[in-house]
Design a binder for these strands. Structure first.
Lengths: 149, 149
DNA sequence: TATTGTTATACTCTATAACTATA
DNA sequence: TATAGTTATAGAGTATAACAATA
């Protein structure tokens, strides 16, 4: 029984706010994506793969911001579910080219809709303007990291 | 070698944004607090304890949004560093009353300043107005969780 | 020598389970 | 019976290390 009765922890540092919001988002995301048999990271990977030309595993890993070992396991799961296919690159036989299957593409589109709807609900307390303002700020922070990093 | 060369992962879902911003914040926080020998969670606990009347461990846990078992370990660490003291409640001998020591109070004040400065730097790309707007939004999301939760 | 992918391992953070003691 | 605290354990998520294949 988690002693998390309080939905609004009273501490208010930035780290604390982010941690708890993310925790709730992770749960909402898992719920929203459960019907599709994937999690948020897998959906993100599918989205990257749908974006353009064929990617190797390290390229996708870089775009997701995860390690190549994490990526290997991630692709294992997606392949097991028939959502992607690996094939060796003819140009560079060290590389695995990962491609969406038809099933993967269909899953992506349906899951993306569910995710979008989930995010809309999640940000609803902020109003439409507040929600897009928040997203702009978060994108700015990711795009324009502070000098410390 | 983490393949996180890309500071700005190209995926842009809300979950992805939060995850990577939080990851960077955790690092910046660890750096900022290292001189004080505590982490962000320990600082948050000290801040709760400084807030007012004596708290039991579960009360602090509730305010931090963590489990009581996590709390026990957390207090172990703080006590080992001489920042807090446990004593049994006379009213209810099941409860540990946790109190800041003088050293804990001094550590709190210095660490709070460092944290504040770190957050200021972290949010600098947003400008002063953007930063306070973001904090307002995050507080609103924590205070006013969507109905799904 | 350096890179890609894989596997096994380890680490961090947190929760669950089981226990003691108190109420 | 229920709550507070402790401890040991387990789980998720991710990284590090070591290896084979390839460049």
């Amino acid at each position: 029984m988690p002693s998390e009765q309080l939905h609004a922890p009273l501490e208010s540092g930035l780290g604390h706010l982010l941690k708890h919001i993310q925790r709730r988002l992770v749960r909402a995301s898992a719920e929203a994506l459960a019907p599709f048999g994937i999690d948020g990271q897998e959906l993100a990977a599918l989205a990257v793969l749908a974006a353009g030309h064929p990617f190797s595993q390290v390229e996708v890993a870089g775009r997701l911001g995860v390690d190549r070992t994490t990526m290997a396991v991630l692709v294992d799961g997606l392949e097991d579910h028939g959502l992607v296919e690996r094939r060796r690159s003819a140009q560079d036989r060290r590389k695995n080219i990962v491609q969406l299957t038809a099933e993967g593409r269909a899953c992506l589109h349906r899951a993306e809709r569910a995710r979008h709807e989930m995010e809309r609900r999640f940000l609803a307390p902020l109003g439409e303007e507040g929600a897009s303002s928040l997203l702009r700020s978060l994108r700015a922070l990711v795009t324009d990291p502070p000098v410390t990093a």
